[in-house]
Amino acid sequence: MNLPNPEVLYARLRDQIAKAFPDRSELGLIGVHSGGAWIAERLHRDLNFTLPCGFLDSAFYRDDFSERGLKQDPKPAEVPFDVNGRQILLVDDVLYTGRTTRAIVNHLFDFGRPSKIELAVLLDRGGRELPIDAQYVGKHEPLNPNQAFVLTLDDQGAFQLGLEEN
């Protein structure tokens, strides 16, 4: 399989968000650790968001926590703005079953009640188990259930995309 260029996908995603949100002065941007956090940080910088960028980890909010356990140490939540009544853009690297997004939304509600939540992802690989969809997508790229996209950052901060077999 030829993997898509993640920098091209990022540019597509960035342009969709810039067009959808010409005024980003009150938009809350929250990245999902870890790949989504990297993407959110770059979006925050490239699109000049006014509010500081937030970050959430889904580890303790997942409905499959008892099966998955902790894959890594959870990162602390950082939501440096008032969530109540605010439009929120969640950013993640790959959308698959929808369970991470559901967990992040549950976690977000610990901080208040947003007026609206939308989702931006670099890759939508299909295979949804929950009725969750992204409004902004770099690319739809179906994968077999035994495969997974892995986003990393190189030493210069450029996105790299790999494929793992489970």
Rank of each mutant, 00 (worst) to 15 (best):
M1P: 09
N2L: 11
L3G: 02
L3W: 02
P4V: 00
P4K: 04
L9Y: 11
A11V: 10
R12N: 11
R12I: 03
Q16T: 01
A20T: 04
F21Y: 15
F21E: 02
P22S: 00
R24K: 15
R24S: 02
L29T: 03
G31I: 03
S34F: 10
G35F: 06
G36C: 10
G36K: 04
W38T: 00
E41V: 01
R42E: 12
N48T: 07
P52M: 07
P52K: 03
G54T: 04
G54K: 06
F55Q: 10
A59T: 15
Y61D: 12
R62K: 13
D64K: 07
F65D: 09
F65A: 15
S66D: 14
G69E: 06
K71H: 13
Q72E: 15
P74K: 08
P74T: 10
K75F: 12
K75P: 00
K75S: 14
F81S: 13
N84C: 09
L89E: 10
L89K: 05
D92K: 01
D92G: 09
V94L: 05
L95N: 00
T97I: 04
G98L: 10
T101F: 08
T101Q: 11
T101G: 01
V105C: 12
N106H: 11
D110E: 12
D110M: 02
F111T: 02
P114V: 03
S115M: 07
K116L: 11
I117P: 10
E118L: 11
L122R: 03
L123P: 00
D124E: 00
G127V: 01
R128K: 15
L130C: 02
P131F: 06
I132E: 10
D133I: 01
K139D: 12
H140S: 04
E141L: 10
P142S: 01
P145T: 11
P145R: 13
N146F: 04
Q147E: 15
A148M: 11
A148K: 14
A148D: 13
V150P: 00
L151P: 13
L153D: 07
L161V: 10
L161Q: 12
G162D: 15
G162Q: 14
E164M: 05
E164R: 14
E165I: 09
N166R: 15
N166L: 15
